[in-house]
Every structure is written in C-alpha cells, then in structure tokens.
Nucleic acid binder design. Structure first.
Lengths: 213, 213
DNA sequence: CTGCGTGTAATGTAGCCGCAATCTTTGGCT
DNA sequence: AGCCAAAGATTGCGGCTACATTACACGCAG
C-alpha cells in the first residue's frame, strides 16, 4: 500500500519519504521538515498512535493523518483524541486521501515552486516570463526580479531589505531610490496591461502585492 | 439534526450557537470569536461550500468542518479543497463528530498561537496585520503598536508608561497627549469596523481592551 | 549611432503623527 | 446632590518625511 501511495503522490509532484518503523518515523520527524505525516496504526515495532502522542508531547507541530484498518467509531475517536489531525479508515479512495492531505498542508506554510499566480497575473520563475490575463509582457531583468519577489508572497509585506537583496544580490547598491523607480515602472506596465493586482507601499517597511481595490 | 447536535454539545459543556442560513453564519463568523465552525452543505439560501470559499478568501482563520449527505469521494474532495479543514458524511456517530471537533480545536490555538485573538479582533504580530471579523484593516505604525500591546493582555490593564514605551521605544517622546490621540483614532477605526471589543480608560493608570458592553 | 536598461536626482504628493485647543467625563469633596 | 478640578476624548492643523513620478545621463549592445 505504501508503494501505491508513493506512486500516486509522485505522479502529482508531491515529494514524499517512506519508512517502515515508528523509530525511523520519529527520527525523520525530528530531523526533517515535513508538511504532513501519514501514519499507519499497525507497525512492526508498535502502535502508531504512540508516536502521535510522543510527538505531541514534544509539541511537534507537524500535521498528522492516521491510517488504519480499524474502522470502528471508537477507534477513530481514539485516533483523533491522541493528537492526530485527521483519521482515515481503510479501504479508502486515493483521491480522498490526497484531498485530506491538501487540507492539512494548507495549514502550514504554502510553498509551491511552480507558477506564481495571483489575480490575473502569472509569473513563471523557470522561464522568467510574466503574463497578465494570458498575454505576455516583457520585463527588464531588475523589474522582473522585484515583481517575482513580491509574487512569492502575495498579500504579504516584503521588506525593503528583502527586495534590494533579491534584486542586487551581492552587489552593493545603496544610495538612491532605484527600488522606488523600479516599482514605479512596474506599476505603469501593470496598469497598461489592466492587471487586477496592485503594488502598495507600506510606510517604513516595504511593499506588498495584492488585489486591486 | 441541529437540535440533537446542540443537545449533545450542551451535555458536554461545549458552548455553541446555531443559525440556519449562510447569511447568518457569515454574520456570526464576522462578529463572534469561535473555535470551530460546523457547516452543512445543503442550506436554505445556498451551498455551504460557498461560505467556506468566502471566508477563506477573507483569510478568516476559523477551522471549518463540513457536514453533508453527499457521501461520495468526489464530494468529499471538493469539500476539502474548497478550504474546509474536515469533512464528515451523514450519517455519522455523534462521538466521531465530537472527536473531530476536538481535533480541530486543538489545532486552532496551535496555529493561531501566532495570532492574538480577542472578540472578533485578530492581530498577527508576524505580519502586523489586523482583521476584524475576517476583513483586514489598515493601521498606521504607531496605532498598530498601541493596539498590539493592548491585545497582548486582553482584559488586563496596560499602564500608560508601558504603552508609551511600547510605541516610542528608545525615542524620547514625552510632552503631549499623543497616546490619547492614538487611542482615539484606533477607537474610531474599530467602531467603523464593528468590532466587538472596546478600549476603556482606567483613570490615572492606563488602558485595557475588553469585550464591548 | 541608436535604443534600451538602469541608476540618479529633482520635484511633487500624501499621510502619519505630534500638538494644542476644546469638549466631555469622572471622581472627590462639601 | 451638586460643584469643581483634573483626566480623558476628540478633532483640526501643520510640519515632516517617506514614497511617487518623471526627466536625464550613462553604459552597453546591436
């Protein structure tokens, strides 16, 4: 079953690791940074719920979904009360498991490194292409870097230092309003392309991109 | 069914409110401070999932569990992907629903640890964002600092020196009623946003934030 | 040479915030 | 209960400063 699940995940470009024992899972959870943990109750070296309890006692924040063949209501209640975040009885549809994983992952930090979409604006970090409402716009390199950086955190403030670092990397570039000028030029292009997003300044802090008023 | 559920919750000393329509639920979510929302899909004025989408679009943080008679895998996937946190098909055992609610509520504070919630007011110190009933309000820097400081100790008095220190840090700024002016402006914004909290003065000592009379 | 990208500087603009004047509330005192 | 003084509330004004915009200059590439 693990193999089938791994295959289904891989096909959807979800990265996953698999171990067989509670001890290994514990070690992985300690060492790595995972968005979600899928756990079977019956394991070679014990009861999966014990790991849930142990992780929660250490205040480990990873969302946990418990799988089991024990489908009775009582078992499900035990599973959830042990500290797990979701509980799914076998047999189950892969699609439902995936949907539940998405729901759990949404709780955590959203990190997808494919297209950055927001409003009718779309940025492809792979090719550095930007399109508004389906039609592509050319952006000079600096302007593109600023916009991509903002699009990586839509609706969130990006500080001025973050932006300058993103655009000027190692280069020392301090002593002008170059960043402001870039922002202004980006705004003009977005406006002409009738984008549904806008770049707003946050005084003393930085900028953010968000849905147009 | 709502009556049975309310009865079961009441017997376990869980406080719950019940409304019948999406419109009412939306209003309650804006106004009140709830640990979790239980939502039926079939409602007199529409599809429950639409409310989920609306709340999530406003970044409303409340955990949502969706109930439905539509038990197919596809429906469950849709439900979870709309932004809900859990999905339960009717018929279900009350005990399982209660366990799932406990799981959601447990996760609520864990996630919202970084949020300061009180009444329908929510402050995110990480991003310096403030929302009332799910919709965000812009606050200038000084006003934000005052409000965050108050929200760190709801129902507790914060002394004038504490507040000025929080707002003016190292800077020497003594010699006017600037703090009072900030309080006044914050009050106006909160009032316009229909917040369920209010800022009260404590003569000769300071201010406190508490539930609105 | 020409055109584009980009940094710089000058100028315009907006909004935060401190100040102070004025009004309201509160609590103590007779 | 009534009065007064002090604390608090509110609001308009103005200065300051960060941000916005634009023109221009320089450099590099074709």
């Amino acid at each position: 079953m693990a193999r089938a699940l791994l295959e289904a995940l891989r096909r959807r470009d979800v990265l996953a690791d698999h171990v067989r024992t509670i001890a290994d899972a514990d070690a992985m959870a300690r060492a790595g940074s995972y968005d979600v943990l899928v756990l079977d109750r019956r394991l070679p070296d014990g009861e999966g719920l014990d790991l849930v309890a142990a992780l929660r006692q250490r205040k480990h924040p990873v969302p946990i979904l418990v799988l089991t063949a024990l489908g009775g209501v009582d078992h499900r209640v035990d599973g959830l009360d042990s500290g797990a975040d979701d509980y799914l009885a076998k047999p189950f549809a892969i699609e439902e498991l995936l949907a539940r994983l998405r729901a759990l992952q949404r709780r955590g930090p959203a990190v997808s490194d494919r297209y950055l979409n927001f409003g009718n604006l779309s940025v492809d970090p792979k090719t550095s292409e930007i399109s508004v409402g389906g039609s592509f716009i050319e952006f000079p390199r600096r302007e593109y870097l600023v916009l991509e950086t903002l699009m990586r955190r839509p609706n969130r403030i990006v500080t001025r230092p973050s932006l300058t670092e993103a655009v000027y990397a190692l280069e020392d570039e301090i002593g002008s309003n170059a960043l402001d000028a870039h922002i202004s030029r980006i705004r003009k292009k977005l406006f002409l392309a009738e984008a549904t997003v806008e770049i707003r300044a946050v005084r003393n802090i930085g900028y953010l991109i968000r849905a147009k008023a």
